[in-house]
Amino acid sequence: MWRSRSAPWTDHAQPHRGGGWHRRPGPLETRHEEGHHPVIRVISFGYGHGEPPAAEVTYDLRDLLRNPFHDPELKHLTGLDPAVYEHVMDTPGAEPLAQAAAYLAVGLNETTGADITVAFGCVGGRHRSVGLARRVGEITQLTNRPVTVEHRDVDKPLLPPGAHRARTA
Rank of each mutant, 00 (worst) to 15 (best):
W21K: 11
R62M: 08
R31T: 06
D60R: 01
V57Q: 11
Q99Y: 10
E110C: 05
L108T: 12
R167C: 02
T30G: 08
P8H: 11
Q14D: 00
R167Y: 11
A54N: 05
P15C: 04
S129E: 00
H127P: 08
I40W: 02
T143F: 15
D155G: 09
R3I: 02
A105M: 06
L28A: 00
A169Y: 15
W2A: 11
V123S: 15
L64Q: 12
E51T: 14
D155Q: 13
T58I: 14
G46E: 04
P68D: 06
S129L: 00
P82H: 09
L104Y: 12
T143M: 10
A102E: 05
R5C: 04
H37F: 02
D115K: 04
T58W: 00
V57T: 13
D81E: 15
P8E: 07
T58V: 14
M1N: 13
N109T: 06
A94D: 01
A13T: 12
A100G: 04
P68K: 08
L104M: 07
T112L: 03
L158P: 04
L159A: 00
P15F: 07
R135D: 05
L108V: 10
E29P: 02
P160N: 08
D81C: 07
E34G: 07
G26S: 11
G137H: 10
E33P: 03
H32R: 15
R17M: 02
P15M: 05
T117H: 08
P38K: 08
H127K: 09
L65A: 03
A133S: 04
G162Q: 13
Q14C: 03
P92A: 13
R3K: 14
G19S: 06
R165E: 13
H87R: 14
Y59F: 15
I116E: 03
R41E: 15
F69M: 08
V88D: 07
W21I: 13
V106G: 06
D11S: 12
D153H: 14
V57L: 15
N109P: 02
L28W: 15
L159P: 05
L142I: 00
H16F: 13
T143V: 04
L159Q: 01
A54E: 15
A163Q: 11
R152W: 09
E110F: 05
G79Q: 04
V106E: 12
A100D: 11
T30K: 13
H32D: 05
K156H: 09
P72N: 01
L77E: 06
T112A: 02
F120E: 06
H127R: 10
E110H: 13
E33R: 14
P15S: 11
D71Q: 14
A102L: 03
H49I: 06
H164V: 03
T140L: 14
V42D: 09
R165F: 04
V106A: 15
T140I: 14
A101G: 01
N67C: 05
G35D: 08
H164S: 00
A83S: 14
V57S: 01
G93Y: 02
P82L: 09
T78W: 03
A7M: 15
V147C: 11
L159N: 05
G113N: 10
K75F: 04
T117D: 04
Y85G: 01
